Simulated assay, not measured.
Amino acid sequence: MPELARPLIRHRSPGRGAAGLLAIGRWLVKVAPAVAFCLLAIISWEVMARSLASPLVPGVGKIAGACESIVLSGEAFTQIGITLWRIALGFVLAFVLSLLVGISSARYDPVRVFFEPAILLGLTVPGLVWALLCVIWFGVSLATPVVSIALGITPALVLSVVQGIRGVDPDIIEMAHVYQLPRRTRLMKIWLPALVPSLLNGGRVAFSLAWKVIVLVEIFGLSDGVGYQINSQFSMQNVEGVIAWTLVFWLGMLLLEYAVFQVLDRRLTRWQRRASV
């Protein structure tokens, strides 16, 4: 038996290596457009900076030096952590409210009509207004960023929940009613799986909106965070500092997208891909 097994093992090894190379090739093809965009943006900015030769448009080297200084000093991790913590708290509050309002609005028309003006108001009011109002109401406290973020992103999350609920197949709902499935079973097996794609997409949009709101709050009413650092660099007319803090936080959000949202998307929507095969 060992003599028979050896040629089989030798035959399988090249196949595994080829599969690994194929996987690497697919990954490179997938990331190549994003890398090309970043390179094109860097080259275009450098060409513009050299053609203008203005201190208001610093070159790539100066911006990279400012980013390196922020990261190596550890200040980037501290300030990004503070900002992300505030965003997370506001996001949790908005998530709970959006589930309550969104599910009720999708299931009952009177509830939808009742909350519709508030949702439209929330979608049209700029984040600047929520930031200023919360600074006036709550002052320098944790409630200021949390409430302002919740007010700014809840309407978008509510719409995502409503779309997810309405996207459930009516035949499945009727079958659950015929078989008299318990509410817990309906929630765990029907409603939540149907909501996951909508909540993930809504979460991405909500995080981008939350970033815009939290920067305004930190500029007007707080003494730390990425927004405060951007405002501090702006007050010193340090353009590369403003751009550097923006890029550092963008890289943090990019890491969050690939390490959290896309991983959750692949795992939580695996059943959809299997069902479509």
Rank of each mutant, 00 (worst) to 15 (best):
P2F: 04
A5S: 06
R12L: 08
G15N: 03
A18H: 07
A19C: 03
G20E: 07
L21R: 10
G25Q: 02
V29Y: 14
V29E: 02
K30Y: 05
K30H: 04
L40S: 13
A41G: 00
I42L: 06
V47A: 10
M48C: 13
R50A: 06
S51M: 10
A53W: 09
V60T: 15
K62Y: 08
L72K: 04
S73Q: 01
G74K: 08
Q79T: 05
I80R: 03
I80S: 07
L84Y: 06
G90Q: 02
F91K: 00
V92S: 02
F95G: 03
F95D: 00
V96G: 13
L99Q: 13
R107S: 13
Y108Q: 04
Y108H: 12
P110Y: 01
R112V: 02
R112H: 09
V113A: 06
E116S: 05
L120R: 01
G122S: 02
G122E: 10
T124W: 03
T124K: 00
P126G: 05
L128Y: 08
C134W: 01
I136L: 11
G139A: 03
G139K: 01
S141K: 02
S148T: 05
A150C: 15
L157T: 11
V158S: 03
Q163H: 05
P170V: 07
D171L: 08
M175L: 15
M175Y: 14
H177T: 10
R183N: 05
R183F: 06
R183K: 12
R184Y: 09
R184S: 14
T185C: 11
T185H: 10
T185I: 14
R186N: 07
L187S: 12
L187E: 11
M188C: 14
M188K: 15
I190S: 12
G203V: 04
R204G: 06
F220L: 15
G225V: 06
G227T: 04
S235W: 02
E240N: 09
E240P: 10
A244D: 02
L247Q: 01
V248D: 00
F249H: 04
F249N: 03
L254I: 11
L255G: 15
Y258C: 09
D265W: 13
R266V: 06
L268V: 11
L268S: 14
T269R: 14
R273I: 06
